[in-house]
Amino acid sequence: MTNPFDDPDAPYLVLVNDEGQYSLWPASVEVPDGWAVAHAEDTRDTCLEYIDRQWTDMRPRSLVRSMRS
């Protein structure tokens, strides 16, 4: 069995957590607690492009908020 995280031809999702961190996620694997779908099922390349456009600040939201205080 192939690792679903390594299959370039499989459908993927983009997930995001409360800290604003993104993850490429195989559509065949259940979304873990604490994560939400940010981009619906699509190709691996399209999902990676979405992440590149959206995740421009790698700092967790809690760190950004603490730095503003």
Rank of each mutant, 00 (worst) to 15 (best):
P4A: 14
G20L: 04
L15I: 06
A10V: 01
R53K: 12
P11C: 09
Y12L: 00
E49R: 06
V29F: 08
G20Q: 06
M67P: 03
S69D: 14
A10S: 05
T43F: 11
R44I: 09
A38L: 01
D6A: 13
E49T: 08
N3T: 11
D33R: 10
N17V: 09
P32H: 13
T46M: 08
P8A: 05
M67Y: 06
D7I: 09
C47H: 02
W55V: 00
A27H: 03
A10L: 06
T43L: 09
L13V: 00
W55E: 07
P8W: 05
G34Q: 03
S62N: 08
L13E: 06
W25D: 02
N17C: 07
R53P: 01
Y50K: 08
P32W: 15
P4Y: 15
G34S: 04
Q21H: 07
M58N: 10
R53G: 13
R65T: 05
R65W: 02
V37L: 08
D9G: 07
H39V: 00
V16I: 11
R44T: 04
G34R: 00
P8H: 04
R59E: 12
P32K: 10
M1V: 09
Q54F: 02
P60R: 01
R65C: 07
P26V: 07
Y22P: 04
D18H: 12
S69Q: 09
L13R: 01
R65A: 13
E49C: 03
E30D: 15
N3W: 09
E19F: 06
Y50L: 08
R59M: 02
S66R: 12
S69P: 01
E49V: 03
T56Y: 07
D6R: 14
